[in-house]
Design a protein around this nucleic acid. Structure first.
Lengths: 225, 225
DNA sequence: GTCTATACTGCGATAGAC
DNA sequence: GTCTATCGCAGTATAGAC
């Protein structure tokens, strides 16, 4: 997310990615184009093709960067929502040492997972780079090792946060994560389309809180079906 | 949703709308264009402009038709989920005659509202015309009375279904509807982007059920905060 | 009411000069 | 590594023939 504007004889590759984020934030995927990115940086429309073979490879680099940044934002929000369990979020053992199945540790884990929805909403509203960009269908054919790693790390982080709640098995963590992402992405998408326009400038925070609360409800339901 | 293919010297206007739905179902908004619609119908690229002044007016007509059809699908699903209350879904009085605040009538109303999410998911997967089309930002400037009426009727129907649950006030019905729509739209959007691809051909029904269950959890949470 | 033909715009991508 | 110049293509929209 560096924004140095050192385009001429600087790191044009990084500048292209940064400018792509700006474009996505302003107009969404609809208005993203190689030509528009070049125009924004004041370089010729041919310049980007020295760094990326085609449009999809540039978008893939953006996707990888978004996955990295989004994961960081999610981890930050999770930590802010409550301290992680002593054995870390990677533990898959459902029987935590000396704690009841629905004890305070599980409640804190639920808070951290719920915070994911708010973090997702805030990040995507600010950057325009949500799962529709990170997992854009046109990127399936692009070979991009960095993107593969970062999207994998992002999903692993989400699954870890879900597993840390008292969800019985790893298998149940997957649909739980999908539900959290679905509700967060739904709020984000409706917001981007102007659905909550009447809310005024502080609408972002209002909706972010609502997304978090909705996620909490989904987590609660998963544990008491 | 008639599909007569009577384009030459038939009702081209209706055929354009029907063909637009096909395009949206296949490629989403991204691939929708006046030229592609004309091509699909075997008419010249100029022909649509005798019926719609520009692209946005065609899309607005599609939006209105989608709102109409989606509302019908939602009402059908709601009725299938359980019989409506005797005084109909338009009643806003929170005190139903002779029933406890969280009685069986309220539970049935919750089932009907939850069914909205499944109906939305199924409709949009089949047609590609969800809220991102119905409320597309580029339609704000289009004067289209039919669309205005149909979107209004759609929202009224959703608010009626939400109010029929034992939600304390009409004010609380609005965020509840928004939450339902958000989760339904989130599942739909992720599905369209290939997020649940591994599910096979029956994946549509699986995800539709999950969207319905998620909606039910949100409704439950709204009543017991 | 639909056709052909056309003007214009914007994007993706390449060739070759510097 | 970036430039200018250019090609090809797709889409929006209009003019005028039939």
């Amino acid at each position: 997310m560096s924004r140095d504007r050192a385009y001429h004889h600087g790191d044009l590759r990084a500048a292209l990615i940064a400018a792509s984020f700006e474009l996505l934030a302003e107009g969404g995927l609809r208005r993203f184009s190689v030509a528009a990115v070049a125009r924004r940086l004041g370089v010729s429309s041919a310049a980007p093709y020295r760094h990326f073979p085609d449009r999809d490879h540039l978008l893939s680099a953006v996707s990888g960067a978004a996955a990295t940044d989004l994961r960081a934002a999610i981890l930050e929000a999770a930590v802010a929502a409550g301290p992680p369990a002593p054995d870390g979020p990677g533990a898959t053992d459902p029987v935590a040492a000396g704690s009841a199945p629905a004890g305070p540790a599980a409640a804190a884990a639920a808070d951290r997972l719920a915070a994911v929805a708010g973090a997702y909403f805030r990040y995507v509203v600010a950057t325009g780079a949500g799962f529709h960009v990170i997992y854009a269908p046109e990127l399936y054919a692009v070979a991009d090792e960095n993107r593969r790693e970062q999207t994998r790390a992002l999903m692993d982080t989400l699954l870890d946060l879900a597993t840390a709640t008292d969800v019985p098995s790893y298998r149940q963590a997957v649909p739980l994560v999908e539900a959290i992402i679905a509700v967060a992405h739904g709020y984000t998408s409706l917001f981007a389309d102007g659905f909550f326009a009447r809310g005024g400038p502080q609408a972002v925070e209002t909706v972010a809180v609502r997304a978090t609360e909705a996620a909490r409800a989904l987590i609660r339901a998963e544990h008491r079906p």
